[in-house]
């Protein structure tokens, strides 16, 4: 037990290093010169060279990567080329907003997904099952930015019930859990929850239906257990797979909400990345991707550890 956990935690180090290497290099592969954003096109060559040297863009790539990693470990991700602010401050400010949105969206998505999936799995083939499966397929198939725009048209434009953009009346760093802020969260959270809801529904439905067909369920009934108790056994068997899927989905929500955050102008990492791409702001891009990737790695670590606690067979492999 202990060694599995220890080993699994140690794996995080090489994975993170590899991830950091790819975020750094991929950004450099993309077309466009980061200098375009800093100096005007007609600036004299000496000025360009000076600015290049100040940001360290004149050094060979391996050296740039080395310096970046060493500073990143110390919590410094460099300065934005677009506005000169510290990347760390920008990224973490945006990350808090994204986390808030992602957590609320996944709470909605996972709750509905588990509920629908369990119901459909238990009553496989029934009308309820077909209805739920329909919702799940819809959830996975509808493009979420389109759904976001539709929600804005209905609830903001036509009905004027909820705001269409932003994260609150003041600056996003003043967030409090009050209605005047929460109302800004509702539409983007619903939009984002639809995909994880669909994916979790389908996974849980398939798992519940499969587990119910196992011999041991009949054996549990033959012991005289009440149906509630049998259900608990089913849940514990479904949980490892469901958790893995939910962990992945939460990871996607953290990094993959670029379109939705842009539709709703939600000041999170998605919007930050979107702006950084258009401004060729390499330090922001690299920093944001790195932080999100590390989040993803840690999330997977937590899922793996939780899975191993729930299913004793996992530690054997």
């Amino acid at each position: 037990m202990g060694t599995y956990f220890f080993k699994r935690i140690l794996y995080v180090i090489p994975i993170t290093l590899a991830v950091s290497f790819f975020c750094f290099m991929l950004v450099h592969l993309s077309p466009g010169d980061p200098m375009d954003a800093v100096v005007s096109a007609d600036a004299p060559r000496e000025v360009v060279a000076m600015v290049q040297a100040a940001y360290g863009f004149d050094r060979p790539l391996p050296e740039q990567y080395g310096r970046w990693v060493v500073r990143a470990v110390q919590g410094d991700l460099g300065l934005s080329t677009a506005n000169g602010r510290a990347v760390t401050t920008e990224v973490f400010g945006a990350l808090v907003n994204t986390l808030r949105l992602a957590l609320v969206a996944s709470l909605i998505g996972f709750t509905l997904g588990c509920l629908f999936g369990t119901l459909a799995g238990y009553w496989q083939g029934s009308l309820l099952d077909r209805f739920v499966t329909g919702i799940a397929v819809g959830g996975v198939s509808i493009p979420h930015y389109w759904l976001g725009m539709m929600l804005v048209i209905v609830f903001s434009v036509e009905l004027s019930w909820l705001p269409s953009s932003g994260a609150g009346p003041g600056s996003s760093s003043d967030w409090v859990w009050e209605w005047r802020y929460i109302r800004h969260l509702i539409l983007p959270a619903i939009t984002l929850s639809v995909i994880p809801m669909g994916v979790v529904t389908r996974t849980v439905r398939a798992m519940v239906a499969e587990i119910l067909n196992h011999d041991f369920v009949e054996a549990l009934r033959a012991k005289g257990l009440a149906e509630v108790r049998v259900f608990l056994h089913v849940v514990k068997n479904v949980a490892p797979t469901a958790l893995a899927v939910m962990g992945l989905q939460l990871g996607y929500l953290l990094g993959g909400s670029i379109l939705v955050e842009t539709v709703f102008s939600w000041p999170g990492t998605g919007l930050l990345l979107n702006n950084a791409i258009f401004q060729r702001d390499l330090p922001i891009l690299q920093g944001t991707i790195l932080v999100l990737a590390i989040f993803f790695v840690l999330l997977n670590l937590m899922v793996d550890l939780a899975q191993a606690r729930l299913d004793p067979r996992i530690q054997r492999n």
Partner: peptide, 8 residues
């Protein structure tokens, strides 16, 4: 082997 719940 299949008649026992594998996670208890």
């Amino acid at each position: 082997m299949l008649a026992f719940d594998p996670v208890f």
